[in-house]
């Protein structure tokens, strides 16, 4: 998988890596069981500190998104959330709240926000279907 790091986004670099893996897993761009790049080549390629990549991977592991097989590397987990339902909900609530606050500031009303969420879910479903279609070819 290829990453894109920006120093201007305001998001810590390790979190950018975490979020990109999560997004790739959710959209189906990264398949369960598929390998992630190893820490050293990825750090070199992005020219970021190895510890930053290691921190991102250990965060992904503790979130249950990836697993490390000793001597073989890191892989996307089959069921990529090892967290309990309430913990998962709690994590999501923070994100949803952030979007709601942002919508308020951008003066996007309730109906439009809900519509937008439906729209984005459809986009993600389409992407996932496209990835699955390709896999069967």
């Amino acid at each position: 998988m290829l990453f894109l790091i920006s120093f201007k986004s305001g998001t810590p670099i390790y979190l950018q890596i975490v979020e990109q893996v999560k997004a790739a897993a959710a959209s189906g761009a990264l398949h369960p069981g598929e390998a992630l790049p190893s820490i050293r080549p990825l750090a070199e390629e992005l020219r970021v500190n190895r510890n930053t990549v290691a921190k991102a991977y250990s965060e992904l592991e503790s979130l249950g998104v990836i697993e490390t097989l000793p001597g073989r590397g890191c892989f996307l987990k089959e069921n990529h959330s090892g967290l309990r339902k309430d913990a998962r909900r709690k994590l999501l609530i923070e994100e949803v709240d952030r979007a709601i606050v942002q919508a308020h500031h951008l003066q996007v009303p309730r109906d439009e926000l809900l519509e937008l969420i439906h729209e984005r879910l459809d986009v993600l479903d389409d992407k996932r279907r496209a990835h699955e279609g390709k896999k069967e070819d």
Partner: peptide, 17 residues
Amino acid sequence: RREFIEAVIGAYQQGIP
């Protein structure tokens, strides 16, 4: 310059974190 930094990350940083 790029190769230098990649070497620092790859070769020097591969020690015990």
